[in-house]
Every structure is written in C-alpha cells, then in structure tokens.
C-alpha cells in the first residue's frame, strides 16, 4: 500500500527531471553552505551533529535511489520505458 503510494508520488514527480534534481541536491548538501550549518561541535541525542547529519543524509539518499529504481522497474514492466 505504502509502496504503491510512494511509487505514485514519484511517478507524479516526472521521474527523470526529479532524478537530476535529487542528484544536484545531493551535491549541494555536500558543499560549503549546508555543511557549514552542521559544522558545529555539538551533540544531538548523544551523537555528534555532523555524524548524525552525514549518516542520516546518506541513508536518505540511498533510500531515494531505492524508491526510484523500484518505480523505474515497475515502469519498465509496464512497457513505457523511460531510459536514456
């Protein structure tokens, strides 16, 4: 149910365009301004802030790829392929 919902949301997002946007977003998150926000020696829930940011951000990006690949493959199965 949730998977179908997610797949539908991503379908709405115009796969290819949002794919590129997520990629660029990932790079932006890894560069100076964003990094600077978390570049503080503080602890959050007993974890260093930067450690938490990078770990969660990383896990999230992997999750994004996973969701995208799932909906890509379901698209491919439906026949309207959208690959390069």
């Amino acid at each position: 149910m949730t998977k179908r919902l997610l797949a539908r949301i991503i379908h709405r997002l115009q796969l290819r365009e949002s794919w590129i946007i997520f990629f660029i977003l990932g790079i932006i998150m890894m560069t100076f301004p964003f990094m600077n926000i978390f570049n503080k020696p503080v602890m959050l829930f007993g974890f260093p802030l930067m450690f938490l940011y990078l770990t969660i951000g990383w896990a999230f990006s992997i999750f994004i790829i996973y969701i995208f690949m799932r909906s890509f493959s379901s698209l491919n199965q439906n026949g309207d392929e959208n690959k390069d």
């Binding site: 794919w19 997520f22 990629f23 990932g26 790079i27 890894m30 260093p48 930067m50 450690f51 990078l54 990383w58 990006s61 992997i62 790829i65 890509f72 690959k83 390069d84």
Partner: peptide, 24 residues
C-alpha cells in the same frame, strides 16, 4: 575526523548518474 566519509559519499552520489552514464 569525519571527512573520511567523503571518499564513500562521492561514489554514493555518483551512483545517481549510473542510470544513464554507466548504462551507456
């Protein structure tokens, strides 16, 4: 410190491009 992660975040980000780059 934690900047060692960059060596792995890079490939993880690059995996985004595989969809078109690597397949090609």
């Amino acid at each position: 410190g934690i900047d060692f992660l960059m060596i792995y975040l890079g490939p993880s980000l690059a995996a985004f491009t595989w969809l078109f780059l690597l397949r090609r």
